[in-house]
Nucleic acid binder design. Structure first.
Lengths: 146, 146
DNA sequence: TCGCAATCATTCGAATTCTGAACGATGCGG
DNA sequence: CCGCATCGTTCAGAATTCGAATGATTGCGA
């Protein structure tokens, strides 16, 4: 008989740990008036992976209508400008403003702080290995790998 | 200047990856009529970490009222029996039934399958290291460490 | 022993988050 | 020019979770 513990499976652990970490990240982001998904959108814009709202929705695995409200909020904060694509006026292009870059940097800093808490006491090589393996798993799951 | 990418922070990656993995786990669980939290509850019962609903709620970082509906569902499936604690009749203790054990085993198997998909192609030592590090991070975050 | 505050489970209304089905505007092939 | 697909938007509602109110029970202090 196989007596694997549920709590030691990656599936369960990544799920629960992900929820806890997101919660903590979200708490830090609250100071900036943002939620994790807002920051995820900013990161996509900075990476240049997508600019139209529909493409962003696909990258984020999220309904296009959700991108609308995320963009609304970000525009309200001056982090993002909405521009009609002149070559296809159906498309709304989202452009990162200078404030948007600052905001993203601040939020990335918050994430880095949280990282420091999470990995406190761990050996550097362990953390590097962790990042590396999570990167490959993420990449294989359709998420950005680096 | 520090040009850390948001997507490479553990905070963000654990969050997004956790969401994706939970989604996939949830899809497999649907065949058994359960959600991840139901299975988490069953795992707590099997581990014997808590039996009263309130203690379970604390362990799961969840409102007591949510445990009620989770337990309702599990009782409905015959996976769990509700018994009044004879020494404190305010307390409802949840007891795993034989079916509950089977169900948990099946769900743990589903998680293990998912693990295999996630770690396919990775070296065994990498996976072991991943489990180990995630275990310590989880333990430090108030989650079961093994 | 009586009464009162605390504890536990439960119910229920509400907040949050997200999706999916419309709809209008725009682009494109014939 | 017309039908049809695409994109953004709106909006109703599904899903999940919490928090406050309630009732039953307990334990404690006077």
């Amino acid at each position: 008989m196989n007596d694997v513990k549920l709590t030691s499976t990656l599936a369960f652990r990544l799920g629960t740990l992900g929820a806890v970490v997101t919660e903590r990240f979200s708490a830090r982001l609250a100071a900036h008036g943002l939620k994790p998904k807002h920051v995820g959108l900013l990161a996509i814009l900075e990476a240049g992976t997508a600019t139209s709202q529909l493409d962003i929705a696909k990258l984020m695995n999220v309904a296009p209508s959700l991108v609308v409200s995320l963009a609304d909020r970000l525009e309200e904060l001056g982090a993002v400008r909405r521009e009609r694509d002149p070559f296809d006026r159906r498309r709304q292009t989202l452009a990162l403003t200078a404030e948007g870059r600052e905001l993203l940097a601040a939020c990335t800093g918050a994430a880095a702080e949280l990282d420091a808490e999470l990995t406190d006491g761990l050996r550097l090589e362990e953390v590097k290995a962790l990042r590396s393996v999570l990167g490959t798993i993420a990449g294989r799951s359709g998420l950005p790998a680096d």
